[in-house]
């Protein structure tokens, strides 16, 4: 049964040091309040899996020293520029980067949701991505001739962590058109979700809502966190806090600036207004 917990703090209380944690791209719903809770709890040695790219949440976790390894197609603050703590950590060698490409991460999760060990995929051959990924293998297509094809191992995150508009009392979570969140939930050992609101109305009894709903079967725990994606936006619900993110992008250029941001916005200010 899905646990309904009181806060993002409680929701993420079981995420252990060393866990692999999958997080979605910013447009799909970032559990920022939960990410701040992880930072406050000083979780260490996470393997962060970006589905398929990550931005502010990844930079924050990396800057705060929570991350040992990142698997991503890209880490960027988008229109606010490059992700400064990510760049610095990779150049310094304090975080290990496993460079991937967007469809490879989606395909790895799809292998996990099917319970198969790998997924074949087109493209990628001859890139330096393939050169540096010793867990990717090229085989001959057994159904063709002279047709090399890449195999990608299944990606099974210990935890998927994201934010969604709503859930119901049974733990069903509505994600609408952001269907990579379903794939993440299917593929992961545990799925932790913060939501804007938990309502009494069942999401699975209305066919119009059920199509965009993750059944509670896949959801380990939920917690209400109004504006839980802030300062990142939740498309269709609220916009990003642009001035906040711009200020972060500036402060995070230096370690001192980042520490100041952390002290002001994460450690001292547990919940944003």
């Amino acid at each position: 049964m899905t646990s309904i917990l009181a806060s993002a703090e409680e929701l993420t209380g079981g995420v252990c040091c060393g866990a692999s944690v999958a997080v979605p791209r910013e447009a799909s719903g970032c559990a920022m309040e939960a990410v701040r809770a992880l930072v406050r709890r000083r979780v260490r040695d996470l393997t962060l899996i970006a589905v398929p790219q990550a931005g502010f949440q990844a930079d924050l976790l990396i800057g705060a020293g929570c991350v040992r390894q990142v698997e991503a197609a890209a880490v960027t603050l988008g229109e606010h520029g490059s992700a400064p703590r990510f760049r610095a950590a990779v150049s310094a060698g304090t975080v290990e980067i496993r460079d991937s490409t967007c469809p490879a991460i989606h395909a790895g999760l799809q292998a996990a949701e099917k319970g198969v060990p790998f997924m074949p995929m087109r493209g990628i051959l001859g890139s330096d991505l393939a050169l540096h990924r010793d867990d990717w293998h090229t085989i001959e297509n057994p159904y063709g001739e002279n047709d090399p094809i890449l195999l990608l191992p299944a990606i099974t995150p210990d935890v998927s962590l994201f934010h969604a508009p709503r859930a119901d009392r049974e733990g069903n979570v509505w994600v609408g058109v952001n269907r990579e969140l379903l794939t993440m939930a299917h593929a992961s050992r545990e799925t932790l979700v913060t939501v804007e609101a938990i309502s009494d109305e069942s999401l699975t009894s209305d066919v119009r809502l059920a199509a965009g709903t993750i059944p509670s079967l896949y959801v380990s725990a939920i917690a209400e966190a109004p504006r839980g994606a802030a300062p990142v936006g939740l498309p269709g619900y609220y916009d990003e806090d642009t001035s906040h993110l711009r200020r972060y992008a500036e402060l995070a250029q230096t370690e001192e600036g980042f520490d100041r941001y952390l002290a002001e916005q994460v450690i001292a200010a547990p919940a944003p207004a």
Binding site: V90, A92, T101, M121, L129
Partner: peptide, 21 residues
Amino acid sequence: SYPRSRVRFAGSFGSAYLYFL
């Protein structure tokens, strides 16, 4: 030199796939 690039950029996004297809 990779992986500890002197200047690190965001990453390859979908290029390694879409360029082929």
